[in-house]
Design a protein around this nucleic acid. Structure first.
Length: 945
RNA sequence: AGGCGCGUAGCUCAGUGGGAGAGCGCUUCCUUGACGCGGAAGAGGCCAGGGGUUCAAUCCCCCUCGCGCCUACCA
């Protein structure tokens, strides 16, 4: 390593050092260390994804913590990994297939899953590569994937145990269904969005009378007319005077020949719509509740494809739900049963992955009984085992956990952990098989068998038609197993029914919600269910760093699963950082086109500048509005560090071998003691801020120390010694400079890993990484230096102030005087007189109690010091004033002439535009000049006074 | 509707029960031997508005206005 290059070139050093750290195992945690453990598990990014700003902020924070703790003497493990992201990944691959005119059903489950794995092999490394670009000190030897073998074992173990404990069940109830993704979604996976729809008013004729006049109709409002085909009641409020007398009577459901009852239901809001509610228990969550309460029939009229079912009637069967809506409206109009329509704003649920409008449909799904788990999860936070930071999230957390519903965990997709449950169609024994003729309800929709398209039917129907068991299973598009069929949950795959030994068993085709495996992440990545050393050493993890958007999706569920299966909280702290938004405060999204790519920032400004910006942005409790300007600013900071280091390294020959200043302690001058005290304060401050997750404060402290204290003051002060001092004096200063620089690099390393390593290696030839050095924490304070140095600094600023205000040419050496009554101040000033003179370009400074000052001196008072600069010879105030006043008069008269011209309408109308433009410019220039001369006169006046 | 947060310099934002801050931008000056991605000196703010608590409020409490987010509902 030699002296530093002229400019810092991030691209040249970043990969070099990252490879070096990796090769030397500096990120690798030990399981046999006697250092205290510190561990973080990364929120696993989607394996098919690429790095966005949110990730960048998220992992930068984790990396700062990781490197800080490594250097602070901890045995640190940061577990990296990726998430299989069920629906999202499946959608990506399905899109690829559709480009080739294929879909997953055409190629079959096995082939499709192989395709996804191929996709993963090709693109799954991208996000990992990007994490490395950011400098993440992850332990790559422990990288995990939510679908890898070990994690799959953990998932299965958890599922089977929950099953055995009765915390899992299947139920046929209304769920959020995405007709495009063709799967159930949990409540959290539905996004509500305000949409302008229509409210239709439909007339339902009463059947008790024969005529169809107005009194014999009930007007009903709906936004989804197509669901009326599944209506099984009309509900009214029991005390609604308009309708209460009709309770118990029946109406004829238009467009069908069904008759339905009018029921009394207090949850109906008489003030909405017409006050009468059509009840569609199979397609609306509220209606489902009413339906169960009143034990009215459930009629499913919309299928999983989003089309109308056979129960919708022959007229509508097979129509798309929105086609059907149009047709229904048309038909109602024809029959004179449409009373009207109006525009209506309402929130409609959309699939969070593909934005398709979800459809509530009846379906058999797996659920986790959540109540007992949630209670425990609340307790862990309430009793302080887990801290949410900032704790403003506590209330959100509690209220969500209080109203939490059972978690629907089955998804009708193929990419994910297939549910480890089998059903036996042949078995009539106890404990696992079918009872009676339930088998008739297992419904299949085979697509093709031996290249013949076969229509669907029940299992036994197809068997009778001569199909083989495995062909049915392999080729079916939809397999629905009624909830009456007993499931058999197994730790190992089975080939035959344990009860009747039949080989014709069916595995549950569904896979688990992707968040199910994520929920186990803190312990599954450490080797659970094996009792590994990693688990023993690193569980519970120290801190989880995450955005609030997945607080409930993920964090809450990790807490539940961690406490259930590890009997302990999965992490002690949860640091919840902000969302990265664009400059206008909008969420960054591809569709809005306001996305800033972290890799572009890295390309333009270097990783260190980008990381430091993120840290500086990360104030608690507020969203980040990302601005490129700020990154640019911190690139300047990097340049500053680089140049200061370069400067100091020029004097390396005067550095003693030890990087300690102890041997010079006796010879330190005031500025050196002062800067050492500031270093001590900064180091102490940064450790405190980091331990409280105040990254922005830590960043600004170190920024201020390096730039405005070390560079602006200390280096400037010691320059004369370096240029002209004797070797002995140089030695003291140079060792102090190196000592500070050494500590600056170490303090800065967690924020800026690359540049610090580069400079570090230019200082020290022994090729040890800065990562193996200790993080600065405790230093001796030179508290007295603060007060003494303030005289120095204020004297310099005072003289500079006068020079600046009076515009005294910087090349001009002046005389100044400082009058002070403080003996301390006087001593400080006298001892540092040459440095002060150098910094203020004075050829003489008189110090003392009784300094005479001439009449024309400019004066300023700071820190009980009267600082003055005699102006004799520098400025002739009288003639200067006269000149300025003359100047002012002239300017003002010109100005008034021009402004008259510019307010003359004839001139404005008739003159060529370029002439007018010129006059305007002239006006601006004159106005500015006038302003300036006025100000100068003002300053001169104050000096005289 | 309920809850949470925000409103501080032209812009983006820190911050604190007692003196109003940073970065960028702006003005003036400076080719001083680390750095013009620099240095020095400045201008600019009833800390959203109103009320209260206090010796003292930008900060604590209440209300109003404006903005954002979350949760729930919407036939």
């Amino acid at each position: 390593m030699g002296l530093l290059e002229k400019n810092f070139n991030p691209k040249e050093v970043e990969d070099k050092w990252y490879n070096y750290w990796e090769k030397n195992n500096l990120f690798t945690a030990k399981t046999d260390s006697n250092k205290p453990p510190f561990s973080i598990v990364i929120p696993p990014p989607n394996v098919t994804g690429s790095l966005h700003m949110g990730h960048a902020l998220n992992v930068t924070i984790q990396d700062i913590l990781t490197r800080w703790k490594i250097m602070s003497g901890f045995n640190v493990l940061w577990v990296p990994g990726t998430d299989h992201a069920g629906i999202a990944t499946q959608n990506v691959v399905e899109k690829e297939l559709s480009k080739q005119g294929l879909d997953r059903h055409k190629i079959g489950r096995q082939a499709f899953i192989e395709k996804v794995w191929e996709w993963k092999a090709e693109y799954g490394g991208r996000i990992i590569h990007q994490l490395k670009k950011l400098g993440c000190a992850c332990d790559w030897s422990r990288e995990r994937f939510t679908l890898d073998e070990g994690l799959s074992r953990a998932v299965r173990e958890v599922f089977v145990r929950l099953f055995e404990e009765g915390l899992l069940y299947r139920d046929n109830r209304l769920i959020n269904w995405c007709p495009r993704c063709h799967t159930a979604l949990s409540d959290l996976e539905v996004e509500y969005e305000e949409i302008e729809g229509k409210l239709y008013f439909i007339k339902y004729p009463l059947t008790s009378n024969t005529g169809k006049n107005e009194e014999n109709l009930i007007n009903i409002a709906t936004t989804r007319p197509e669901t009326m085909l599944g209506d099984t009641a009309v509900a009214v409020h029991p005390e609604d005077p308009r309708y209460s007398h009709l309770i118990g009577k029946t109406v004829e459901l238009p467009l069908t020949n069904r008759k339905i009852k009018i029921i009394s239901e207090s949850s109906v809001d008489p003030s909405f719509g017409t006050g009468a509610l059509k009840v569609t228990p199979a397609h609306d969550f509220n209606d489902e509740i009413i339906g169960r309460l009143h034990k009215i029939p459930f009629i499913s009229v919309i299928t999983e494809d989003g089309r109308m079912s056979g129960d919708a009637g022959d007229r509508y069967k097979g129509l798309d739900r929105y086609e059907c809506r149009k047709k229904i409206i048309a038909n109602l109009k024809e029959e004179g049963l449409l009373a009207g329509e109006q525009r209506h704003l309402h929130a409609v649920g959309h699939c969070y992955r593909c934005k398709t409008i979800i459809e509530p449909i009846l379906s058999v799904q797996w659920y986790v009984k959540i109540e007992s788990l949630a209670l425990e999860a609340v307790r862990l936070v309430r009793e302080g085992n887990i801290r949410l930071i900032p704790n403003a999230w506590d209330n959100n957390y509690y209220s969500w956990m209080k109203d939490i519903k059972d978690w629907c965990i089955s998804r009708q997709i193929w990419w994910g952990h297939q549910i480890p449950v089998w059903y036996c169609p042949d078995c009539s024994g106890n404990g696992g098989g079918l009872q009676g003729n339930v088998i008739e309800h297992i419904f299949y929709e085979p697509l093709r068998v031996n290249n013949n398209t076969i229509s669907g039917g029940t299992y036994s129907h197809l068997r009778k038609a001569g199909l083989k068991h495995e062909d049915i299973i392999k080729n079916s598009k939809i397999i629905r197993i009624p909830k009456e069929v007993k499931p058999l949950s197994q730790r190992q795959d089975i080939e035959e029914c344990p009860n009747c030994k039949s080989k014709d068993i069916i595995r549950d085709p569904d896979v688990l919600d992707t968040w199910f495996s994520s929920a186990l992440w803190p312990f599954s990545t450490l080797g659970w269910p094996e009792n590994t050393k990693e688990l023993k050493t690193f569980y519970p993890t120290s801190v989880l760093v995450t955005g609030f958007d997945i607080l409930f999706f993920w964090v809450a569920r990790m807490i539940m699963m961690g406490s259930k299966f590890m009997q302990r909280e999965p992490f002690k702290d949860v640091y919840i950082h902000a969302l990265v938004r664009d400059l206008d405060g909008h969420k960054m999204s591809k569709s809005k086109g306001n996305v800033i790519d972290p890799l572009v920032m890295i390309e333009r400004y270097g990783t260190d500048a980008f990381r430091f910006s993120l840290a500086a942005f990360a104030a608690q409790g507020r969203d980040v509005r990302f601005s490129e300007k700020k990154v640019e600013g911190y690139r300047h900071f990097i340049n500053k560090i680089w140049n200061a280091s370069k400067f100091i390294l020029n004097y390396r020959e005067f550095r003693s071998d030890k990087s300690s200043i102890n041997e010079y302690a006796e010879q330190l001058d005031l500025p050196s003691m002062w800067i050492l005290n500031r270093l001590a304060m900064t180091a102490q401050g940064i450790n405190k801020e980091l331990s409280e997750y105040r990254f922005n404060d830590a960043a600004s402290k170190i920024y201020h120390f390096i730039w405005h204290e070390f560079c602006d003051w200390y280096i400037e002060i010691v320059k004369p010694v370096l240029y002209k001092g004797d070797d002995e004096a140089k030695k003291v200063i140079v060792n102090c400079l190196f000592f500070i620089l050494d500590n600056i690099l170490r303090m800065l390393h967690p924020f800026m890993p690359f540049i610090t390593e580069e400079i570090w290696n230019s200082i020290y030839a022994d090729k040890t990484s800065i990562m193996t050095s200790a993080y600065p924490s405790e230093f001796p304070f030179y508290t007295d230096a603060e007060e003494l140095m303030s005289f120095f600094i204020d004297a310099v600023s005072g003289i500079r102030h006068i020079r600046g205000e009076l515009n005294i040419n910087p090349s001009l050496e002046i005389i100044a005087g400082i009058k002070t009554l403080s003996q301390k101040a006087e001593i400080v000033l006298r001892e540092n007189i040459s440095a002060i003179m150098k910094l203020t370009k004075c050829r003489e400074i008189n110090i003392g109690e009784d300094i005479a000052r001439s009449e024309d001196s400019a004066v300023t008072i700071k820190n009980n010091m009267e600082i003055y600069v005699p102006l004799g010879g520098l400025l002739d105030i009288k003639s200067e004033m006269a000149r300025l006043i003359k100047d002012k008069r002239k300017t003002e008269s010109e100005l008034s002439f021009v402004s008259k011209k510019l307010s003359n309408e004839d001139f404005l109308k008739n003159a060529p535009t370029d002439i007018i433009e010129k006059e305007r410019e002239k006006f601006n220039i004159l106005a500015e000049k006038s302003q300036k001369t006025s100000e100068s006169i003002k300053i001169l006046k104050t000096i005289k006074g």
